Simulated scan of single mutants.
Amino acid sequence: MRISIFVTALLMSTIAGTATASNTTAEQIYSAADDFLQAFAENQADEGFSVAFDSGKLDARLSLATCDESLEVTFSGDPWKTTQPSLLVSCEGLRPWRMFLPVSVTITGDAMVASRPLSRGERLTESALSTDSVVVNSIRRGAITRRDQLVGMEMRRGINAGTVFTPDLLLTPAAIERGDHVIISARSGNFSVNSRGKALASAGIGEQVLVENLSSSRTVRARVTAPGHVEIPM
């Protein structure tokens, strides 16, 4: 309780001590926040999204040290994953300070949805995809808005028609299946030597996989670079 009283007194003392100067007011903070959000809305409009926003509430008596530079405003989190982000408002002048301003932001636009029920393990094709207008940032796991991010992906679980696609619903299909014959490239700079091998496990592009070299019968760990191709350092 004493700590709380002390902190409150310290804050009031700071405000009183700066009141005689030309202090940064709540109105100035709102103005900087609105300019930032308006610019964000205009940028997203160019990408086909509609943004509505509302600044949070500050005590009208708020008074911070005067800032001899323009206030800097950024999102403190990802506005595409919540409708209630906060803005970080800061002064980098001679008497620096920073504060958080809660705001409401809705981003509406087309997101990719399932055009029909989809099963676990199903590989996505163009016919499985459709679009629908949604509040994109109300979907906590992040709505997918681009068709090219979905075609060829595999469903992690089944979903109903109209379900918005999110990253957690998808699996990157294996570029190599266990038992596949592959080309092993031993590479050093621009020089490489190729040999034939057999994959001992399934893996996607960029992943490591054990491969048996069919010429030497040795087992090596290689990185998948493309379907049917792996690479090892020389």
Rank of each mutant, 00 (worst) to 15 (best):
F75P: 00
D54S: 14
T125D: 12
L58A: 02
M99P: 02
G142K: 05
R141S: 12
T82Y: 01
E69I: 11
R147G: 00
A52Y: 10
L94F: 11
V51Q: 03
S70Y: 10
R61F: 06
V73R: 03
L101N: 01
S70C: 03
T66N: 12
G152P: 10
V51T: 15
R123E: 12
D110C: 02
T125G: 12
L150C: 03
V51P: 03
T106K: 10
V151T: 07
D78S: 13
R146P: 00
A45W: 04
D54H: 11
L62P: 00
C91W: 02
F75W: 10
R98P: 00
S86W: 04
V89F: 05
S138L: 09
A128V: 06
T74A: 11
S70I: 08
G158M: 06
I159F: 04
L87P: 03
L71C: 10
C67Y: 02
I144K: 00
L88V: 02
T74N: 15
A52Q: 11
E42K: 15
F40P: 11
P102I: 07
G109Q: 04
M112A: 09
T108R: 13
M112H: 01
P117E: 08
V135P: 00
R116Q: 10
L150D: 01
N137M: 09
F40V: 03
L118W: 06
A65F: 15
R116I: 06
L124D: 01
T108Q: 11
G109V: 05
T145D: 01
R61E: 12
T106M: 13
V135I: 08
L129K: 05
S70R: 14
E69G: 05
N137H: 14
T82H: 08
S104H: 15
Q38A: 08
A60L: 11
C91P: 01
T82P: 01
G142M: 07
K57N: 12
E69L: 12
L71Y: 04
